[in-house]
């Protein structure tokens, strides 16, 4: 904990920015895990909720001069409302149909944002500095002290939700919705609730993300981003709080590193040579997509519980060593 507080004072600014970025993703992963990992409902459209959070927060602050916290809260509630609405058809849908419906939702949101003038169209919106009352948060360091505590609170809130009655109801739906119903769980209510909670988390994260990056446009919220969110949950470990945190951190780290993959010593040079010979150098950053794809496939084939599964196995190994 004290490490988290001291961190921005001892490390270069880029790493502070990186931690902010990771924290935002951890929030999304946490919410998405409640939906996918705990309730067993898939979503391939979380970039849509993320976008709603970002755009609504920014517009409320810039156009209506609403204070930051109020704007963020309204944006997250709006995202949750969209989540609730999207969750309604989900009640009657099984896996494949739900995946398709959420995919369509994510794509439709981007279409609408990209075409409407109020959202800045394809060009996007510049985000002004975050201000809390009279204070303006100018640097990544100041943002850090805003974002990290919120992340910690949201992660603990999620942990508490899944550990108590609501969480058990969600898991019961995942494992057997029929038995859940006959044990008195209102499946309709809890499924839509799970959608709303995870959309709320994505909305908050979206609102914070806008300030971390400083600029938003439709291109930042594509289908690929939805898959990236999904891979955080899958890689971290479905149905585990620690897993969502690990997955969020790991995938965001990888994403940042792979954006400039050609500058990684050794590996990057090798890739540049391969690119010149067989592929194209301009297309090199797309390697991140290949790596994420491979990770997703390997996780399912090797360890469906993800990093959390590896962690459990390692722990078991040490506990029982040398047997």
């Amino acid at each position: 904990m004290s490490g988290l507080i001291a961190f921005p004072f001892i490390s270069p600014n880029y790493y502070v920015y990186m931690l902010n970025y990771m924290a935002v993703n951890v929030i999304v992963a946490m919410g998405l895990n409640i939906l996918i990992g705990y309730t067993g409902q898939i979503s391939l459209g979380h970039a849509g909720f993320f976008a709603i959070g970002a755009y609504v927060t920014v517009l409320f602050i810039d156009k209506l001069h609403v204070p930051f916290f109020a704007a963020l809260f309204v944006a997250a509630l709006l995202a949750a409302a969209f989540g609730f609405v999207l969750g309604l058809p989900a009640l009657r849908l099984e896996g494949p149909y739900l995946a398709i419906a959420t995919l369509g939702f994510g794509m439709a949101i981007i279409q609408v944002i990209g075409r409407a003038a109020v959202f800045g169209g394809r060009n996007g919106l510049l985000v002004s500095k975050m201000s809390i009352g009279p204070y303006v948060l100018n640097t990544d360091k100041e943002l850090y002290f805003m974002i990290i505590p919120m992340t910690v609170i949201l992660v603990f809130a999620a942990r508490n939700i899944v550990k108590t009655r609501v969480g058990r109801a969600l898991v019961s739906i995942r494992d057997s919705d029929i038995a859940a119903e006959t044990m008195g769980v209102n499946v309709t209510y809890y499924k839509t609730l799970a959608f709303a909670i995870s959309a709320f988390y994505a909305g908050i994260a979206g609102g914070l993300y806008a300030f971390v990056i400083g600029f938003i446009n439709p291109g930042s919220f594509t289908f690929i981003l939805s898959i990236l969110f999904l891979s955080m949950v899958v890689v971290g470990g479905l149905g585990s709080v620690l897993g969502a945190v690990m997955g969020g951190i790991f995938i965001s780290f990888l994403n940042l590193k792979l954006e400039s993959v050609q500058y990684i010593p050794g590996f990057g040079d090798m890739l540049v040579i391969i690119s010149k010979k067989w592929m194209s150098v301009t297309g090199l950053p797309n390697i991140s997509s290949i790596i994420f794809g491979l990770i997703l496939i390997l996780i399912v084939v090797i360890e469906p519980l993800g990093l959390y599964g590896f962690w459990i196995r390692t722990k078991k190994y040490w506990k029982t060593w040398p047997f």
């Binding site: 939700i161 108590t164 009655r165 057997s176 044990m183």
Partner: peptide, 30 residues
């Protein structure tokens, strides 16, 4: 039709679902 990835205890606690009151907001405050 059990909740196979819950423990026995959690399965039984789910059985108490109707008798318990904790909702989303109060759950957060644990």
């Amino acid at each position: 039709e059990l909740f196979s990835r819950m423990t026995t205890m959690e399965n039984l606690m789910l059985g108490r679902h109707l008798h318990m009151k904790t909702g989303l907001w109060s759950g957060v405050t644990l």
